[in-house]
Design a protein around this nucleic acid. Sequence first.
DNA 1: TATAAGGTCTCCCCTTACTGGAAGGTCAAG
DNA 2: CTTGACCTTCCAGTAAGGGGAGACCTTATA
Lengths: 130, 130
Amino acid sequence: MNISQAADQSGVSAKAIRYYESIALIQPARRSGNGYRDFGADDVHMLRFIARARGLGFSVAEVADLLALYRDKSRASAQVRGLAANAIGRIEDKIAELRSISTALSELVARCHGDDRPDCPILDDLAGTA
Amino acid sequence: MNISQAADQSGVSAKAIRYYESIALIQPARRSGNGYRDFGADDVHMLRFIARARGLGFSVAEVADLLALYRDKSRASAQVRGLAANAIGRIEDKIAELRSISTALSELVARCHGDDRPDCPILDDLAGTA
DNA sequence: TATAAGGTCTCCCCTTACTGGAAGGTCAAG
DNA sequence: CTTGACCTTCCAGTAAGGGGAGACCTTATA
């Protein structure tokens, strides 16, 4: 099948598929006589794997590791679990950071009357006036 | 003062200061006779404003808006509050997304025994085997 | 005075994970 | 034959700077 069919079936855009090929995350696709990339069910399966992993917050580099582990039938599940745990840690750190920012910002918003008057505690705080 | 002093006092790196100048977020700095940028207390104050706003999750484009509002002494506080509310909304959306990802990943990790055996529900799930 | 160390300048490449677009070849339909 | 929808490659750009090269400038020290 052509790239747009593979894109539709996998949920990975055609652009992204070419990108993944360019960075060697996936093997170069077979080519038809006309030079078009030709994908099979296995390719779509692999792309779906990638799409799910990316959706779960794994970086492309981590996806490469996951794919290697996936192909290596003798891998230890601990390795995969380690990758996942790292991803969770990164995500939780980011959440904590955003949570803290959101709280600080919410406090400022609560103190700002938000009407036509120019007085604004948000700007005052940013300016260090407070 | 030179750029590194301004950087130290404002918490904005020298690189970032030059970058902010290049994108016209701040006015081009005065130059000393030797061509070095020359910063004053006002400049440091402005940089600190920027650093705080960036730290609160405002994008550089939003910081530009905030600076304009800061300079406009007749602005309505509602405008500033609106910017902040948008920022909060964006941050909360991102938190919700990360939260969902983290939960899904944690469930997978919990189901993976994580030892020397090759069997791994994480990979199975990514592969769509489950 | 020579020189070494360190600060500054501009400029360009690198990052993440792609997306968009231009220029040009291919294919099926009318 | 032409139109439109594909496909190809390559270049540019995104956010927000970081890293480093090569060239000046300044200051301290021997």
